[in-house]
Design a protein around this nucleic acid. Structure first.
Lengths: 134, 134
DNA sequence: TTATAAGTGATAATCATTCTCGTTTATGAT
DNA sequence: ATCATAAACGAGAATGATTATCACTTATAA
């Protein structure tokens, strides 16, 4: 992969904005700095960066992919009620990391190498769950 | 929700074909029985049936949604290597159901009501994992 | 039987993403 | 340094899944 100003800009935007943006959002942000940049370039580079493991793609939301510049493996949560997408808090991250270990150890041989952190957790968030039966 | 021949046909197709088909596939299948049926009708009814809890939507694959007429809560697996999408075997289903219990009991209060079975497990399947490091 | 609201089908529209292709640019070798 | 070349770019067209529109049909309850 060769150096390019555009790719660097896109990567920086993702590193500096921990908000799981869409390609569209990144495109607009990139234009502010580099008005001539094209949409295709943004999509092309997002794909390349995902491929290279520099960023992460979050699919399965509502048809629009989102991206995450956070290097560390971590878990995402989508609230089915309010629709919010967010990183779990550290405590939950640790909790799930431990579970993942257990799953790796005890899961039947049928499916090997399940990676929970590539999945999107779906449920009901704290705010939305007040008074709601579980 | 009112009775309609079209909706019934679509539901039957899903019940009789445990293959996680796309809307397109269901449309083609439906035409064989009812040549005049329209695409919009298929999408409209798939949405309605998901909404009504009669069927399940599987998102986050490769941009195309898939549908599942299986009533029972169960887990799906997508192999990142061969791309196959399938129901886990009964043994794995049970294993994951137990884990889900554990998660419900021990998960921090931040996110309540996480439903593992609405997620798509991603990893490497048995066939693809032969000789591959985990 | 009839009123009416839900469902249908054809087709146009939407919208995220990819493709094409002629031009530009980073980079390794001379 | 400059050159060759393959990678990357930008504009705009194309794709493809899904949804919206709207006039017409049909299930259902009074």
């Amino acid at each position: 992969m060769r150096y390019s100003k555009q790719r660097n800009l896109i990567l920086n935007i993702l590193r500096e904005n921990p908000v799981h943006p869409t390609a569209e959002w990144i495109f607009e942000k990139a234009r502010e700095e580099m008005p001539g940049i094209g949409v295709a370039t943004v999509y092309r580079n997002l794909n390349a960066l995902v491929e290279a493991g520099e960023i992460e793609r979050i699919s399965g939301l509502d048809g629009v992919d989102r991206f995450d510049g956070n290097h560390m493996p971590h878990y995402h949560m989508k609230c089915n009620t309010c629709g919010r997408l967010y990183d779990l808090e550290p405590e939950s991250q640790e909790s799930l990391a431990r579970m993942e270990e257990v799953i790796r150890e005890t899961f039947p041989t049928e499916a090997v190498g399940i990676k929970l952190n590539t999945m999107l957790l779906k449920g009901t968030c704290k705010q939305c769950s007040c008074g709601e039966p579980m």
